[in-house]
Design a protein around this nucleic acid. Structure first.
Length: 352
DNA sequence: GGTAGACCTGGACGC
DNA sequence: GCGTCCAGGTCTACC
């Protein structure tokens, strides 16, 4: 028998707005269904894969922004494709809670809207992410040095080739342990990850053992130490509010396949929004929307200066400027189909 | 510390 | 259908 349960959300939470807020909602195993305003995903609960459908209020397409707003704060209805015990249900709720950032309640977002009132009316502020930090790291690595359609393919194939299959016949994102056991040749040949094969497996081994990379002497001299070897707890260390942004960034930069862009992006996925993951898309934004001029280096400086006033929330302001542009081009994000609209997000296709 | 070139894949384009 | 070119961030070697 299928399991049904509900998850409480902050009073300003709107599923359609807060899920369709970052590109990862278009990547497997995520599947947003615009016709029913429901979010479908498959989660690896540790021993098996469970497919869940999440709705908020009516399982119908929102007729507009006002109708969407009426769903605000309604607890999420979760329907799983199999019966769940209490412990497994708690795992599912925990993974979904991380994805939807339910820890960021209205007080957090009202603080943000004071700094940047442009998004107060729409209530934008939350950014969808994955159920685990490991999945966020791999998704970030698969978004580097490729166009968006290739990122979609890599994530879909990693789910299908390495992930667990649910009773519904859908695939979860592979756990670190499963990816750690995969041969690089298989990843490259069947998941189209290219030269990222070894890097992904190295990352998987680190996260499976929950240890960080070897600590370079330079960083040790600065007093930056993260859990390595038998100490464990690398993920918890990264997610701990006690760990400074500077130390988290330095640690992430030591991960294989992670450079300045990826490290800054993983930081926002960790809920640390002060750093900007600037890339070629940022350059396009600077030129076409902000009307900045100059060399790429100069544009980067201007971008940093532009977002400086938003302080600890810099990334949110940067991202929602981009998102507003995408929605102006493609319509509200909660109307996007993964297989059609969702594939069109590349700098070249979005250029004026 | 800064820079050049290699790393791969999928898509666009020309023939 | 084939070949060529291009986009994309990280890594390594070199100055």
């Amino acid at each position: 028998m299928a399991a049904k349960f509900s998850i409480p959300v902050p009073r300003d939470f709107i599923l359609a707005r807060d899920v369709c807020s970052y590109g990862y909602f278009l990547l497997a195993p995520s599947h947003w269904d615009p016709s029913t305003a429901s979010y479908l995903t498959t989660l690896d609960t540790g021993g098996r894969a469970v497919t869940v459908r999440i709705t908020q209020g009516e399982a119908t397409a929102p007729t507009g922004v006002r109708e969407l707003a009426r769903r605000r704060g309604i607890p999420l209805a979760v329907k799983a494709d199999v019966a769940l015990g209490k412990a497994e249900q708690a795992v599912v709720a925990g993974l979904l809670g991380r994805m939807f950032r339910v820890d960021e309640d209205h007080t957090v977002l009202s603080g943000y809207h004071k700094v940047d009132p442009r998004w107060k009316k729409s209530g934008r502020g939350r950014l969808m992410r994955s159920g685990t930090l490991f999945e966020d790291v791999i998704k970030t690595v698969t978004s580097c040095n490729v166009t968006w359609p290739s990122t979609i393919i890599m994530n879909r194939r990693m789910c299908e080739i390495v992930g667990r299959k649910s009773a519904s016949g859908l695939f979860a994102f592979p756990t670190a342990a499963r990816l750690a056991r995969t041969r690089p040749q298989k990843l490259r040949a069947r998941c189209s990850v290219g030269y990222r094969d070894q890097r992904i497996i190295k990352l998987a081994k680190m996260f499976a053992k929950d240890v960080g990379p070897a600590l370079p002497r330079k960083l040790a001299a600065k007093g930056i130490a993260w859990p390595t070897g038998k100490q464990g707890g690398f993920t918890a260390w990264l997610e701990s509010p006690q760990t400074t942004d500077e130390h988290v960034f330095a640690a992430l930069m030591e991960l294989p396949g992670v450079g300045p862009y990826a490290a800054a992006n993983i930081m926002q996925l960790l809920g640390r929004y002060a750093r900007l993951p600037l890339d070629t898309e940022s350059i396009r934004h600077a030129k076409s929307i902000l009307k900045f001029t100059g060399t790429d280096r100069e544009l980067m400086k201007k971008l940093h200066a532009h977002y400086e006033p938003f302080g600890e929330h810099r990334f949110r302001s940067y991202w929602f400027e981009l998102w507003e542009f995408y929605e102006a081009k493609r319509g509200p994000a909660w109307t996007w189909e993964r297989e059609t609209t969702g594939k069109t997000f590349t700098a070249a296709l979005l250029a004026d």
